[in-house]
Nucleic acid binder design. Sequence first.
DNA 1: ATGTCCAACTTGTCCTATAAGCTGATGACA
DNA 2: TGTCATCAGCTTATAGGACAAGTTGGACAT
Lengths: 248, 248
Amino acid sequence: MQRGQESPDAVKVRTLPVQVAAHLTRRIVSGDIEDGRAPSELDISREFGVSRVVARETLKILASLDIVDVAQGRRVVVRPRAEWDYLSPLLIEWLPAEIVGELLQELHQMRVLLEPELAAMAAASVTDETLDRLRGEIDRMAALEGDPNAYLEVDHEFHMEICRAADNRILDRIMYSARWLGTASRRVTNEAPAGLRRATAEHTEIYEALVARDPAGARAAMRRHLSNNYSTLLAEKGKHTKRAARRR
Amino acid sequence: MQRGQESPDAVKVRTLPVQVAAHLTRRIVSGDIEDGRAPSELDISREFGVSRVVARETLKILASLDIVDVAQGRRVVVRPRAEWDYLSPLLIEWLPAEIVGELLQELHQMRVLLEPELAAMAAASVTDETLDRLRGEIDRMAALEGDPNAYLEVDHEFHMEICRAADNRILDRIMYSARWLGTASRRVTNEAPAGLRRATAEHTEIYEALVARDPAGARAAMRRHLSNNYSTLLAEKGKHTKRAARRR
DNA sequence: ATGTCCAACTTGTCCTATAAGCTGATGACA
DNA sequence: TGTCATCAGCTTATAGGACAAGTTGGACAT
């Protein structure tokens, strides 16, 4: 559940504007389109053989991801990569595996900063209903260790549940955006994560700290969990040399 | 600089779809539109006297903010408020001052979790060029204490500069989204913040800790800064009773 | 009562036309 | 020669009409 706009199981062919936007983004990333020389509506219409309406919606999608700037009369311009909306699952899906790998590390860094504190806050204010739901999700995960995809769905829901305890829409949104972690990491590792059983044990530790209303314990347990998470991630996809001088 | 898609000073009349989207969002928030009964393209077209193209783009905007779900054949449905994209300046602009006030608190809570650590990380790896820019921004702020709007622009840039030192696109994006803080807080407080001079002093403290490459000092200075920031925010707009039982 | 099928509704895409805004080049004028 | 107003051409914004494709709920037959 909580699948957002995704369809149940079939991949569901995306709409034309989304497909074209994907193509264009890949071309921009590959350097095929130099900055500031983005194609116009007519260019897109001609090149992809789509109507101007579709070309137009394509540009609107790219604009909503802060990939381009579009204004009446002015030519469309590509914005600096540093300002793109890397929290959007759509954009992530279009990026090459190499960049996604980097983003996974950066996402993890963010989670390390936020989630231990969220767990501590949750421990101070968690309700019995939330604890029940967490318990249920742990059980479901334990039963899904053979199905990594489904497991990661529940995993995400478990972390979201803790985040929700903070009753903060901004933090909610940030963590919710991390839902692409599952899909992306699957794309990068291309294999079932090894440590699902250990993850379940770690989730249980977090849960027990919450039951005990122990902020420090919850924080520590979450920190351990994330740290283990990270090492399996690294182990699966090999070492990535950190990019240098990417900005500007 | 770094103004994104905003025009220099004039408010620049927004496009028709944006205006209509604003209207609809306000109506949804006010409860005028019951959940799951969003107007169709034709409804919008008729009610607002716009073409179907505009009605269509309106729905696409709302969809990109996760306010509604739209799919072929199915009627447009309003999504749960908890899942809206509260990181979007567009949405913030359309929300009533009361909710914006709450969001400002939640945003601040997020910053308290992230920024002190960002400052500590920056202290460990900051370059001389970044220090130069920070120095320049402090000077500019000192000269702009009479112009709160311009001051807050540079203020945001100062914090972004520190964030950038972490070389993390995810964190960048999160902090970048906080750029609506300036506009929103101005809408809420409706007055020039009192403590600009103190803010400059605090920025200088952070800067000096960075110059000294002192992570702990930078973390502490940033924490003090945010805490002071928060009290002036609270003082200006009076106490807000925290909403209860908002979810679901 | 149950399952099939269809009609009505809704979004997706296309075509054509016009309005509105920007940019750069042309050319008048000093 | 230098400066500035003007305008042609390009671009996006909006409009209207048409058809394709997908969904839903009710009519209808079993």
